[in-house]
């Protein structure tokens, strides 16, 4: 049963990462692309690590917890830095009906 759960989580992680990459190609500007790129990376990798931890090996669980925690703290900072730079450079929002209250 744990093997099945691990497989499902692994496939889910790969799927999320793939959708993230597709989003970077498909979405129209830096602002929207950042949603796909950064967050998909976090959740996709988190699922892969949880999948590796399902078997119950203490060492793997400890490192997975550490990695997920560090990713949860660093991924948003990276996304914020990219969007702040894009706004500072005057990057245009090319999405249909884009709202700008800044």
């Amino acid at each position: 049963m744990t093997a099945v759960i691990a497989d499902v989580l692994f496939v889910l992680g790969l799927l999320i990462l793939t959708i993230g990459v597709y989003g970077v190609v498909r979405l129209p500007d830096t602002f929207t692309q950042s949603h796909a790129a950064s967050k998909a990376g976090f959740l996709g990798v988190a699922f892969l690590l949880i999948s590796a931890s399902v078997e119950g090996d203490g060492g793997i669980i400890a490192r997975a917890v550490l990695t997920i925690t560090v990713l949860a703290l660093t991924t948003p900072v990276a996304a914020h830095a990219v969007l702040r730079a894009a706004r500072t450079r005057g990057e245009e929002m090319r999405s249909p009906g884009a709202v700008d209250e800044s």
């Binding site: 597709y22 498909r26 999405s95 709202v99």
Partner: peptide, 13 residues
């Protein structure tokens, strides 16, 4: 991303 839901009015709030 997959186009199942429309990308409508994204922006800075």
């Amino acid at each position: 991303v997959l186009g199942i839901r429309r990308l409508e009015c994204p922006g800075i709030v």
